[in-house]
Amino acid sequence: MGRNLQSGRRLRPIDLARGHGLSAQAVRNYEEAGILPAAERTPHGHRVYTPLHASALRAFLALVPGHGHGRATEIMRAVNRGAATEAFRLIDESHAQLLDDRRTLRAVADALRDLEPASTPGPGAGPGARAAFIGELAGRLGLRPATLRKWEHAGLVRPRRDPRTGYRIYDEADVRDARLAHQLRRGGYLLRQIAPLLDRVRAAGGLDPLQSALHDWHGRLSTRGRDMLTGAAELDAYLRERG
């Protein structure tokens, strides 16, 4: 490390906690978790923090909104053990996930444009939306049949049953709903959030709620991208201070 932890003024846990809505114990927990560099101790065993620790705390808290608590923790641990390359790899993975989520959003928007704003099921699910059995549809979507059964229980898809065999048959509207449910799940929506959207899609003029969901999703992705920039700036400042 480029500078001694004792350099600069000494700070108590409460000094670091102030201004962040944290407790002194939370600061100590962050140190024990490797989020902050190890603090030196006084002869009486009290932790001695420095402005470097304050910089590490700011970096971590700035990383959390864009990367999540777990990934931000991994990034800071890597930096504090001198493995900056590992930290950069973790950051790259978060950016790759954000890009993948943007592509997913675009895919959902494209699927939505293919839908007919009508309550009657029709060929509105786009290419490849012909009727299918559960195994075939699961294969198309890269899911397990058990997932489709779970979605059926939650009201996301409503396949009919073959009267002779009892097999589930997913018609074009079911395939459409399954595709949309799959994309929305990838976008972070819960089953209980998706079900009412698809209920409205099935009704006349029911595409508006899905349009609203896509708008909200777009906003959340933009916010995450901005949060990643903020986190990167604070992490860069911490790396420079470490030397």
Results as ranks from 00 to 15, higher is better:
R12M: 02
R18Q: 11
H20S: 09
L22Q: 05
I35L: 09
P43M: 04
H44E: 15
G45V: 06
H46M: 14
H46D: 15
V48D: 15
L57D: 09
A59N: 08
A59L: 11
F60L: 10
L61R: 09
H67R: 06
G68P: 08
R77A: 00
T85D: 11
A87D: 01
A87W: 02
A96D: 09
L98E: 01
D101K: 02
D101L: 06
D114N: 13
L115S: 12
E116D: 14
E116P: 11
S119L: 07
S119D: 14
S119N: 05
T120D: 15
G135T: 12
G139K: 05
R144F: 15
R144D: 15
P145T: 02
L156H: 09
V157R: 04
E172T: 06
R176P: 14
D177I: 04
R185P: 09
G187F: 07
Y189W: 12
L190R: 14
L191G: 08
L191P: 10
L191Y: 13
L198A: 03
P209T: 01
H215T: 06
D216Q: 07
H218A: 10
R220P: 05
R224T: 08
L229Q: 14
A233V: 12
E234C: 12
E234H: 14
R240G: 07
G243K: 05
